Amino acid sequence: MTAPTDARRLRVNEADARPNRRRGGDIRVTLSPVTVGSTSGFGGILSLEPGEFVTEHYHPYSEEFLHVVTGALEIAVDGTKVSLGPGDSLLVPIGARHRLVNTGAGRARCVFHLSPLAPRPELGHVDTEDPVDRTAPQPQVGGTP
């Protein structure tokens, strides 16, 4: 018999997640090996103001699941542009280059999840465009906090 799960230790509010602007926008990793001890992936919230973007990159080990909550976005996946709006979901396959931009007049918000995890956190993202803020650290999703 396993011990009961304490759901309070598995809950993270986006306000408690550290914002990361390395690739643009406000990316907050809420559920990860560091925050809740997940073993198969990580996810969180992305907010982009009008005109803001997330620089092009790819994930050599993970698929990315993206669900738009509010706003108008355009994502380029391996050069093919796709318009997204509230309620739209999109799968970014492993190894696909992708870049996301807010094309609307208001803030856009997305929920994202990547799975499976890379063998080591530093292998999870490969930048193909210079990050917006090179001084910002990579988002901490695995290893020690």
Rank of each mutant, 00 (worst) to 15 (best):
T2M: 15
P4S: 06
P4H: 02
T5H: 08
A7G: 12
R8I: 03
V12R: 09
V12A: 04
V12S: 02
V12W: 00
N13W: 09
R18E: 10
P19H: 05
N20W: 00
N20L: 02
R23L: 13
G25A: 04
D26Q: 12
R28S: 04
T30L: 12
L31S: 11
L31H: 12
S32I: 00
P33Y: 01
P33T: 04
T35V: 03
T35K: 10
V36F: 04
S38Y: 00
S38D: 06
T39Q: 12
T39S: 11
T39D: 12
S40T: 15
S40Y: 10
G41N: 00
I45K: 12
I45A: 09
S47W: 06
S47P: 00
L48I: 01
E49T: 11
G51F: 04
G51I: 02
V54P: 07
V54Q: 13
V54L: 13
T55L: 05
E56P: 02
E56T: 09
E56Q: 13
H57V: 08
P60W: 00
Y61A: 06
Y61P: 05
S62D: 08
E63Y: 06
E64A: 07
V68R: 01
V69D: 12
T70G: 09
G71V: 05
G71Y: 05
E74F: 06
E74A: 14
I75A: 11
I75W: 00
A76M: 02
V77H: 03
V77D: 02
D78L: 04
D78H: 05
K81S: 14
S83L: 14
L84E: 02
G85R: 12
P86R: 13
G87W: 05
D88I: 05
D88S: 13
S89F: 08
S89V: 09
L90T: 01
L91W: 03
P93E: 07
P93M: 07
G95V: 01
R97A: 13
R97M: 08
R97H: 14
R97Q: 08
H98E: 02
R99H: 10
L100G: 03
V101T: 14
V101Q: 10
V101L: 11
T103H: 02
T103W: 01
G104S: 07
A105D: 15
G106R: 15
A108R: 00
H113G: 15
P116C: 05
L117H: 02
A118S: 10
P119F: 03
R120G: 10
P121L: 09
E122Y: 09
E122K: 14
E122P: 04
V126D: 06
V126N: 03
D127M: 11
T128S: 10
T128K: 09
D133E: 13
D133T: 12
R134K: 15
T135W: 08
T135P: 01
T135G: 12
A136T: 04
A136K: 09
P137G: 14
P137S: 15
P137K: 13
P139R: 09
Q140M: 13
G142A: 09
T144E: 13
